[in-house]
Amino acid sequence: MISIKNVNKSFGNHHVLTDINLEVPKSNVVALIGPSGAGKSTLIRTINALEEIDTGEIIVDGISIHDKKTDINKARTNIGFVFQSFNLYPFLSALENVTIAPMKVKGLSKAEAEKRGKELLTSLGLGDKFDAYPGRLSGGQQQRVAIARALAMDPQVMLFDEPTSALDPEMVKEVLDAIRQLANDGMTMVVVTHEMGFAKEICDQIVFMAEGKIVEVAPPEKFFTNPDSKRAQDFLSVVLNH
């Protein structure tokens, strides 16, 4: 479903992504983990072209995302993106946040978009928050609205860039539960996360990055008990033993 081939990217002299190769099959969930500055966020942002790449190719559902001939707006409708800082539209209600892109981009009628939006918000436990503005919602609620907003476009792929990092601890669970539900429904997902327990539980593959490179790719059972690379061993000894 997602195919990343020989991707390189630099900011000036700083090589942020070096020779990245990664395959994410349909319905797989992949966690990108690693120390800060490893390039995880940059990598996930290249998958929907929020970041440009210098060389290489990224193919999502058969579409070459960074090809100049690709209609990137159309390609993006197939890729849901959830941000660390939610980025909800503060002047629109929860329901309007969810319905605006289906209406303006896909041309859905207001009634169709609202029907689907209400279903999504309800399934994410926000059935009583349709008319609430983002400023009146907790962080966990805002992030669930953001997930509903991304799902409203009926994407084949969902990308999560540190979806729980800006949340208070007691709200992390409700957002992880929502992502877990998506995984159970067979959504293809890439998640940048620092939640190791969560990564271990729901992911098919762990991708460990450091200094702009993919150091190790392994299933979670193996990665968390017996990683091959010294770099991953050091990282895990720090994050698992604090």
Binding site: T77, I79, F81, I100, A101, V105
Partner: peptide, 19 residues
């Protein structure tokens, strides 16, 4: 992040500006 969210949902630059 507002522009990024709008563009991620498939809006064109013009639509993101406008809406």
């Amino acid at each position: 992040g507002q522009m990024e969210a709008a563009r991620s949902a498939g809006m064109s630059n013009f639509q993101a500006m406008r809406y």
